[in-house]
Structures are given as C-alpha cells and as structure tokens.
Computed example of a mutant assay.
Amino acid sequence: MNYSSIAVLGAGSWGTALALLLQGKGHHVNLWMRNREQYQEMCETRENKHYLPGVHIPEVLKLFTDLEEAVKNVEIILVSVPTQSVRGVMKQILPYINSKQIIVNTSKGLEQNTLLRISEVVEEVAPGQPFVALSGPSHAEEVCKGMPTTIVVASKERKIAEFVQDVFITPTFRVYTNPDIVGVELGGALKNVIAFGAGIVDGLGYGDNAKAALMTRGIREIARLGKAMGADLATFAGLSGIGDLIVTCTSMHSRNRRAGILIGQGKNLEETLKEIGMVVEGITTTKAAYQLAQEYQIEMPITKEIFNVLYEGTSTADAVGNLMTRTRTHELEEVVDEDINW
C-alpha cells in the first residue's frame, strides 16, 4: 500500500491510540499536543501517563508542540481535541494548510452557543476543506491493545471517505464508509447524553431493566432529532448510532457513563469533573441537544430530564420519576430501507 503522512492534533487517549494505530501500519505520523509539560514527559518516558498509561510510544512516532511543523505538508490532519476546542485549533492551523489536506475529526459533540456539528464548524473556518467524520464504538484502551474494533467514516465525497478508509483499516480495525455525515455526527454526539443518563441509572443502583429501557428509548430520541435535522434514520441503527450507544452506556472505559454514576451517587458536577479528570462531552452536549430539541420542536424527554439534573437542580430520583410517570403512549418505530444515492 501507499503510506500517508498524517498529523494527529491532540494527545488525549483517543488521539494517542489512533496515532499508534496509524504509525503501526507504517504511516508517517506527527502527534501534536498543546501542553508543554505533557510533551516533555512523553519525550522522556515515551508514555502518555495521564491519558493512556502503560502503552509504549515508539521513537518513530514524532511528537510536536509546534503546530505549523506538525501539519506542514501532511496529507491528513486528524483532529482529536475536545469539541469546544475544534474551532480554535482550526483557526490556528488555517495559515499553514492547503486546500487538498483532508480534515478527519474524531470529537463527538456539538459546539456550544452555535449548536453546530463539527463539519459545520470546519466549513465556517475553512470553506471547502475536504472533511471526514470518524465515529463508532471504539475505546482507546482497547484499540491500542489491538482488540477488534469497527468504526465508520463519513464524508460528502465518496472518494475521500474511501481513501481515509484505506488509510485506517487494519486486520483488527475495520472501517466502514457512510455518506450520511449528519447522522454519523449526531449519533456520535448525542449518545454521550444517553450514556451519561445510563451512568445515573447505575449510580442510583437500578438494574438492567432500567438501563435497557433508557438505551432503547434514548436511540429513539436521537433518531427523532436526527430525522428532523436531515439525517438518514438507517444510520442510527449502525455503528455510530446503536453501536456507539451500547459501548458508551455499558463500559467503564466511558467517561460519560462514569460521570453519570458519580452524579447518581450524589456527587455534584464540580466533584464529578474533578474525579474524572478529562473532558466529559455529554455534559456540554446535553445543553446543546436540549436547545436543538426546542428549536426543532422535537420531544426528547430523557435529554430534558438530564438537562434538568445538570442545569436546573432536579434530583436524579425525581428525574427518573418524571420519566416513568409521563403521559402513557404507544411505541412506534420507523424502519427505513431505501437505496443510497451517493
């Protein structure tokens, strides 16, 4: 195969794991981080002790704090920073990139205030820049150990999606393509809200019945908003929908679930974030999802109750009670089976 040059922006757990995956495949990888102390420690120890402890970082994987040097002349720029930092990072690299470099985004969230998806943020900052969203059920801790993982890449342009598919795919890291960038981005972002709720269910000591109900009705909420925003309903039955929802709601690798557990156990938001020690995308995405539901006049009761817990002072027990005593209704799920014209 032809090897590519790739800049990975963000040395959190996922950025580091993907950098290792790509370097292990033979690609030329630059891993950039903003924090100088983290850079120095990683150079000295060849380990990302805070985000991915115990995983060796080979010398051939180049580390950078200079953004211009990291992105110069690479084919792919993999953006793996928290959602609220994407716009700033894109503005920083804009003077140093050309119109052919492909932006691959891995963050799963919605921008606060604007309520934009990441592809929309990138389009505002760098109009016309080739863009791919990478999403799906994928914990960094498992990927860096070579455990079987499947993800999806979405782009408006099929050739670009298939190029990125070829760059990333390995015998243990299977990559699918999808033309529905709206659905893939919304599935990846909104499942964090439901995963936070699943953690609350665990923190309250409720059982499998409650979590199964939350996950099932949660994907329904996601799909309902997604349809209103132009997504294909079939996408939410795929890797970036149900797949990502399952893994995030059930695994202790999930910081969204872990944060929800702490809230369910009675800790406040400040205590929770301090204990997690990393960005919890579901917390900020809850507010954005709640605002989008109002804008599109979509009923999202689970999202509404999680919003009330986080921002309105509602107790977790009361939130569950509100969901269980809603006006009775029937269950009706749409099934979509149609040809894709991509």
Rank of each mutant, 00 (worst) to 15 (best):
E68A: 15
R87N: 07
A126D: 02
Q101I: 05
R87T: 10
H56C: 10
V74D: 04
L67Q: 03
V79D: 03
S107R: 00
P58Y: 01
E75C: 08
G109V: 09
N48R: 02
E47K: 10
A126V: 13
N98E: 10
F64W: 01
A70S: 10
S99H: 13
V89E: 00
M42K: 01
L61F: 02
V55L: 04
A126W: 10
Q129V: 15
V121W: 06
Q84E: 02
S99R: 12
Q112K: 14
S80H: 00
I77L: 08
S99A: 13
T65F: 00
F64I: 01
S119R: 12
K62F: 05
Q92L: 14
T45E: 15
Q101K: 09
T114F: 02
S107V: 03
T45I: 11
D66Q: 03
V125S: 01
R87S: 08
V122L: 03
P82A: 11
G128W: 10
S119V: 07
L67F: 06
E47T: 13
V125T: 06
Q129W: 06
V122R: 01
I103A: 07
P53C: 09
L134H: 09
G54S: 09
N105G: 13
M90H: 06
P95E: 08
R46A: 06
K100G: 13
S107D: 02
V104Q: 07
M42F: 05
N73D: 15
V89H: 01
N48D: 07
G128N: 11
R46Y: 02
I118Q: 02
L67G: 03
S85E: 15
T65N: 05
P58H: 01
E59K: 05
V60W: 00
S107G: 05
K100W: 12
R117M: 13
F131K: 09
V74C: 10
Q92K: 12
E120Y: 05
L110W: 02
L78A: 00
V121L: 06
L67E: 04
E124N: 08
N48A: 07
P58S: 01
V71Q: 06
Q112H: 11
S99P: 03
G128H: 10
N98C: 12
R117P: 01
E41K: 15
F131G: 07
S119P: 00
K72F: 12
E124T: 04
N48F: 03
M42A: 02
A70G: 04
P82R: 11
V55I: 14
P127Q: 04
P82E: 11
G128L: 11
E59S: 13
Q129R: 14
Q92Y: 04
